[in-house]
Design a protein around this nucleic acid. Structure first.
Lengths: 192, 192
DNA sequence: GTCTATAAGATGATAGAC
DNA sequence: GTCTATCATCTTATAGAC
């Protein structure tokens, strides 16, 4: 389970989350993995190939963790908190951005093969959150300010933006404050 | 008012907002301005110098526009809408990110001279929004879910994240949907 | 202030040996 | 699969003429 290929994907992912897609090199990855940069081209002919593989791997793993959480707990609020904790974890672990949040900001300088995956990632997240919020709304007869899909978009936007503000202020606690308020809307009575 | 120096700053700003700090070169800027890349070094010795000047210029202009808006209108809700429209404008004009939002995401690959300015930008915005929200709250006897400063952080996070989600989905309308819901919280009765 | 010329290093990528 | 060697290109940056 520590094949060179998976090691390359792992370190590329971390570097994208920390520095962005255009500020790491094949040599940087190679040094981390302990091989030469030319060996990376054997697994991923171009940087676009590597980038797409990293994004697709991230998307699938992220989604798998969401589905796994659903099997362990079916309380919508708890699941929203789990979703939030996934973002919190990347921030605490090396001040990393969400991979797809970083790539989305940079999307105009990325190959189209990568932007396809980013779009899928956000669609996946919004669908998952939307179904959750709708279930919470129907169960407790709540009234939202907008349809569940729009509420889902606002929620994930708050988290992606929360990472940016926390990084900009250089204070990881800011993320917790932001996400706590974003969550409160769905934890209490439904007049909001 | 079209000095080479201001032209350089302008085009550098646009390119950072579109592609990020590490995906444009002095030659790219030089071509846009119509000079040679070596001439840029006369005005800005290093790329870090240019980056800091761009960020500082953005920060001051952004803040000046906020203060200008305050002299024309003192309704907190209208001012929140104005704040929002500033973000909307950058998205509609070339799918650009907020300059400091982009730089904040990339902050781990930036010189410290730039991260200082980014921190100031967000502090400025949060202070401005916070005072606004507090005034709205006191005037109408509203109840927020958190203190005004935290509400301000959530609000700007929603906008920064709104840009990211809209870009990720490749649909600028998504930003409007997100910002509309974020705004509703402060337009209506105060139980939220 | 802007130019030409150039340096010194990094980058993505390929060819061919093992 | 990984290596060495190499390439063409791009990058920031500097020196010196005009």
């Amino acid at each position: 389970m520590h094949s060179a290929k998976s090691e390359i994907i792992h370190h590329a992912q971390v570097m994208i989350q920390k520095y962005g897609f255009n500020d790491f090199s094949f040599r940087d990855i190679a040094e981390k993995v302990g091989i030469k940069s030319s060996s990376i081209h054997y697994h991923f002919p171009t940087k676009a190939d590597l980038g797409r593989a990293v994004a697709e791997n991230y998307r699938q793993q992220f989604l798998a963790e969401l589905h796994q959480a659903e099997t362990e707990n079916d309380d919508p609020v708890k699941l929203l908190e789990f979703f939030t904790s996934q973002f919190r974890r990347t921030l605490l672990d090396g001040h990393k951005m969400c991979l797809c949040g970083m790539l989305s900001a940079e999307s105009q300088s990325l190959p189209e093969s990568m932007t396809e995956v980013i779009r899928s990632f956000f669609n996946d997240c919004i669908n998952w959150l939307s179904a959750l919020l709708k279930r919470q709304k129907d169960t407790h007869n709540l009234v939202y300010q907008a349809d569940s899909e729009t509420e889902a978009k606002l929620f994930i936007a708050s988290l992606e933006g929360g990472l940016i503000i926390a990084k900009g202020l250089g204070d990881v606690n800011v993320f917790d404050k932001i996400s706590d308020v974003a969550l409160k809307k769905y934890q209490r009575h439904g007049s909001s």
